[in-house]
């Protein structure tokens, strides 16, 4: 049955699908990591700003 073009095409089709899924999966995984990192940076930037503002307020008093 190896020479059956239908089997052969289907194998090629599945292989193509598989490689696309792998690449898409890694991209989505990388994006998830990136979004997490962005969130952490943004949150810590915000708390830095708050701390600075509080320090400035304390300095005035």
């Amino acid at each position: 049955m190896i020479d059956d073009p239908r089997t052969h095409d289907l194998e090629l089709f599945r292989a193509r699908q598989k490689s696309r899924n792998r690449v898409l999966g890694s991209i989505l995984g990388a994006l998830a990591v990136l979004f997490f990192a962005i969130s952490i940076v943004k949150i810590s930037n915000q708390s830095h700003k708050k701390a600075e503002a509080a320090a400035a307020m304390a300095g005035q008093h």
């Binding site: 239908r6 095409d9 289907l10 090629l12 089709f13 696309r20 690449v23």
Partner: peptide
């Protein structure tokens, strides 16, 4: 059942 007509190949990610 096998598909009667092989569907068009999806484009390669490359």
């Amino acid at each position: 059942t096998q598909p009667a007509i092989s569907p068009a190949l999806p484009a390669d990610w490359r």
